[in-house]
Design a protein around this nucleic acid. Sequence first.
DNA 1: AGCAATTTAGTTGCACACGATTAATCATCT
DNA 2: AGATGATTAATCGTGTGCAACTAAATTGCT
Lengths: 154, 154
Amino acid sequence: MPNSTPRRLDDQLCFAFYSVSKKFNHFYQDALKPFHLTYPQYITLLALWETSPMTVRELGSHLNLDSGTLTPLLKRLEKQGWISRKRSDQDERQVNVTLTDYALQKRDEVYARVNSCVDLISFDNMDYQQFLGGIHQVMDELDTISDKNLIHES
Amino acid sequence: MPNSTPRRLDDQLCFAFYSVSKKFNHFYQDALKPFHLTYPQYITLLALWETSPMTVRELGSHLNLDSGTLTPLLKRLEKQGWISRKRSDQDERQVNVTLTDYALQKRDEVYARVNSCVDLISFDNMDYQQFLGGIHQVMDELDTISDKNLIHES
DNA sequence: AGCAATTTAGTTGCACACGATTAATCATCT
DNA sequence: AGATGATTAATCGTGTGCAACTAAATTGCT
């Protein structure tokens, strides 16, 4: 007979992730307001500041986003002058996403702004690496379950 | 002079929260598929299974959601027969959200299904309470920064 | 070469999430 | 009672997120 009461702790863990993710999103929204960037747009630029150009597919596998999310996001970044999109000559299925000169110039300014806001967060007496490791452990578990398709539909 | 390189760890922490939150969302989407419920709909029902009826405002403060999110979500839950919405007689500004008999009957079934899926997640050698405490510590920090309005616009 | 399967980006539809605004109601103060 | 301000839910607009599908291009196989 299955336990018919909710597992408070697991629910709390998921809800905590859900809540803190929204709060972080809001935090970055404020921090990035001078540049009119959202958090997903910011991490897209972060990835491109490391490697540019990248195809939509490569960007998606870095950020865990599919084209249904990325294509409109990239169009907005393009309209605001951060990136350019151009179909590859070698493989016309692919679209190369390239940073504009504007984005390259603005990079340090964005970094400085984000850093100054992140400095406001105090991570006193918190084992950072262990904490991050715990999150990744949970993520790996969820990936494993998803891959093995252990959850069957009704 | 501000540090002009991105703070990898802080970015990683935020990105980890962002990613794990999406994965958990997907996990619950699968688990709740037999009931055609999304994760936000599920936590709404969870709150109501504890206390029903509740006003939209009360629900919102429990779930950290505003009426712009809740109103359409509640309309969907109403259309699917889980809840009913009715303006309060005492204060006609408020709307009381009440569980239907269907929702009360289905409660244990939903709990059992979620529990059986959550059982698949292994939390080996992880200090659960400490981990949860760490997340809440980060949340409190973000709330403090937000409340103090320390991040000013351009 | 020719055809099927695969890959890639885009599109569509639905469901959050939230800032900003609106309309209705309630509380307060004179 | 009447004006004023506050509260509440709903609405609107924008931006994700993702499943499902489409169209075009490439690869693989014969």
